[in-house]
């Protein structure tokens, strides 16, 4: 996978985005906005930068990736399926009764999910635990926690960051999906959580702010984080609903009702069936 070039990663991200949309459209409703904003980042991680193996998903030395903003699970599931963790057709069962793919990322049901999340603020703490485990056991793996900007209104996020900074967890990277929107509107209008950079620096993190849809910048920055001697933060400037005509950049894209017509307008034919 390391030979993946930037242009192939973009193509892969486009495919994953389509898979994600089709997966949500099949059920008719879902968290498309916050899934779409992190597709490029997930693609870069799972297809190039992270030390993972779909055939050995529990390897103790694998890099850990915790989607703390667990509602973006459709984006993660599409990425995992594309990467070969499970059959792509399973994506069509998202949220159906008795499904293996519940709306929020589930470690017990889905191969490749490193921790269950959905109750916001909790995944990042588990990720800090995983990073501490690596240091205790002198393992070389890196842990990434993907956190929403809205999610960062949860106090627990800052408790976790404080501990990671305090313990100098160089093997830990927090990734803020700064799509600037949450369910009730613009994050800045609901409850201001920015600026991230200065806050994270105060919490003893080395910070990088990049365009969250720029694959080259993502790859370069993950590389820097994996080599860092201190905890790192990547602030992704992203667009909620990225790549969807119907909801790009609109806060109401958090969870969207999808009609077959809307799906047809977004994609020319499905990629899963």
């Amino acid at each position: 996978m390391e030979s993946n070039t930037i242009s192939t990663l973009y193509k892969q991200a486009d495919l994953i985005r389509k898979m994600c949309i089709e997966c949500i459209a099949t059920f008719g409703v879902g968290h498309i906005g916050g899934s779409s904003s992190i597709i490029e980042f997930l693609t870069a991680l799972y297809f190039k930068m992270a030390n993972i193996d779909p055939n050995d998903p529990k390897n103790p030395d694998r890099d850990r990736i915790v989607l703390s903003k667990g509602h973006a699970a459709p984006g993660l599931y599409a990425t995992l399926a594309a990467r070969g963790y499970f059959d792509k057709k399973l994506l069509l069962t998202l949220n159906q009764n008795g499904t293996q793919l519940p709306s929020h990322a589930d470690m017990l049901k889905v191969s490749g999910v490193d921790f269950t999340a959905g109750s916001l603020g909790q995944g990042i703490s588990a990720a800090v635990g995983m990073a501490i485990n690596a240091i205790m056991d002198r393992r070389k793996y890196h842990t990434f926690a993907i956190v929403g900007d809205g999610e960062s209104q949860e106090g627990q996020v800052w408790e976790a960051l404080m501990l990671a900074g305090s313990r100098h967890l160089h093997n830990f990277t927090v990734v803020i999906d700064n799509n600037k929107m949450q369910i009730d509107g613009m994050t800045a209008d609901v409850c201001k959580v920015e600026p991230f950079e200065s806050k994270l620096r105060a919490f003893r993190f080395k910070t990088y702010t990049i365009d969250g849809h720029d694959m080259e910048a993502i790859v370069d920055t993950i590389e820097k984080c994996k080599r860092s001697r201190m905890p790192t933060a990547i602030i992704l400037n992203t667009i909620k609903g990225k790549g969807l005509k119907c909801c790009e950049g609109h806060y109401k894209s958090h969870s969207v009702n999808f009609t077959p017509e809307m799906f047809a307008a977004e994609c020319t034919g499905g990629v899963l069936k």
């Binding site: 921790f115 703490s125 990720a127 635990g129 501490i132 627990q156 501990l163």
Partner: peptide, 26 residues
Amino acid sequence: PRRFINCGIAESNMIGVAAGLASCGK
């Protein structure tokens, strides 16, 4: 000393960190 973690006065995070450690076999 390597197996002791004082999380500070942050019980919610302590529980989450413990869960993450448990997921790694601790």
